[in-house]
């Protein structure tokens, strides 16, 4: 077989391009997966806890107000977004629902506290005045969201600022979405 330097050079170049592209894709993809596993898991745990808190509030509220109540509906809508695990809602939508839940839950708690049926029920009054507000407050771990955002922003900045990152983006490794309502 006749040795052709030009063909060998092209072949070598192609192999080099493939190796660099494959390395960039693998490396950035792995780093993204690791970040999603570590910080994303904590964020998901927080969102799950928020959804559970909303459910608990709804459970108590159902005993005293009709489900058609406006404040009840607002809490239910927030819970629906927060409890999504199938990717039906974006992270921005979840962040917005997380913010809205605080106001909606406070409105419903205030309404419940003023009801005679709640005031006459020592157990539910304790839930409305003490346990549920504490639960909602504890579930809203702003530090977890901030830690995720910081890690995601650092990842995005590093990836977009490097040649291998740009290559990985062309090959389908996307930047991480931020946990922000905007």
């Amino acid at each position: 077989m006749k040795f052709r330097p030009a063909a060998a050079f092209v072949l070598m170049l192609l192999m080099l391009v493939f190796a660099v592209s494959f390395g960039a894709y693998q490396g950035w993809n792995r780093e993204k997966a690791q970040l999603e596993e570590a910080e994303g898991a904590a964020l998901n745990a927080m969102l799950r806890a928020r959804a559970e808190s909303a459910y608990n509030l709804m459970t108590v509220a159902k005993r005293h107000v009709p489900e058609s109540d406006g404040d009840f509906q607002a809490v239910r809508e927030c819970r629906q977004v927060l409890s999504d695990e199938k990717g039906a809602y974006t992270l921005a939508q979840k962040a917005a629902a997380n913010e809205s839940l605080t106001a909606a839950a406070n409105a419903l708690l205030t309404k419940l506290e003023g009801l005679d049926s709640v005031r006459q029920d020592s157990r539910d009054l304790m839930y409305v005045q003490s346990l549920l507000p504490q639960m909602l407050k504890e579930s809203n771990r702003t530090a977890v969201g901030a830690a995720y955002n910081e890690a995601a922003a650092h990842f995005n900045q590093t990836m977009t600022g490097s040649l291998s990152g740009a290559l990985a983006r062309r090959l389908g490794v996307d930047v991480l979405p931020l946990f922000s309502a905007e």
Binding site: E37, A41, L43, A45, M135, R141
Partner: peptide
């Protein structure tokens, strides 16, 4: 007590 699982911070530590 509230959620029957570890707090998110503990979860992250375990991941680390």
């Amino acid at each position: 007590d509230f959620f029957g699982e570890d707090s998110p911070e503990n979860r992250t530590d375990r991941g680390r």
